[in-house]
Amino acid sequence: MLIELIDVSYTYENKAPHERRALNNVSFKVEKGEVWGIIGHTGSGKSTLTEIMSGLIKPSGGEVLLHGEDVSKLKNPMSKIKGKVGLVFQYPEHQLFEETVLKDICFGPSNLGLDEEECIKRAKEAMELVGLGEEYATLSPFELSGGEKRRVAIAGIIAMRPEILVLDEPTAGLDPVGRDMLFKMLGDIKGKLCESIVFVSHSMDDVALYADKVLVLNEGSVLMQGSVKEVFERSGELEAAGLDVPQVTRLLIRLNEMGHSFDKTLLTPEAAADAIYERLKG
């Protein structure tokens, strides 16, 4: 296992009047090769969880095991996690600051203490993985389109060659084509560089299509976790928790309520159309 969280809790402003519990005994683990989707309402603790996984904040309780070693009690967990878990924030393009795309991407690896040659090598490798041609290297990041900027920001993280790439709402604000391209790109990155990917999303459709495993958070606690199929089988509970289920799932549930019997874990229009067609013609 790459990273495992055991009974992790987090309280903002601990023991202060504004104390607020953001995470409650959350346990989950990411194995090599997995793509996890984390879903939940605003305020459910998704972002806090990504910050704990990447060592930005220490949990108030529980353990964070990286390759089996508890890093949460270290004085500076960052020293162990740095370079192993890469976190891409929401709207990461707002954080670009350098004069050129190449320099911006080199910032992460140079903070790992690598020499310039190695940084440039890694930056170029990262650019290729996110689909930015060499001609972008000398451009100012501020001249690029929103989608291109986001790719530069992601390249800056993967240039550190993290084993796990964690992304907080990577598709916010992108159009459908941009969204598909981003997930395709993540697939490439996973095949070539990172062992595992964890992404936070509001969109059940994105999770249904691109994740293998799903973690559903509700008010700081784990509501359910498991394979995409296992989680969507409990779509009633998801809806009761006020979460969006894919439109196709809603349709199949409605048809089942009308007395039909369809497998409600069919998530895509293609799969559902095939099943309905078979029933109509079969």
Binding site: P176, P269, E270, A273
Partner: peptide
Amino acid sequence: LGLDVPAVTKLCNLL
């Protein structure tokens, strides 16, 4: 045009 149609519209269109 690089856009989506609602998922149920797509499903009906496939049928």
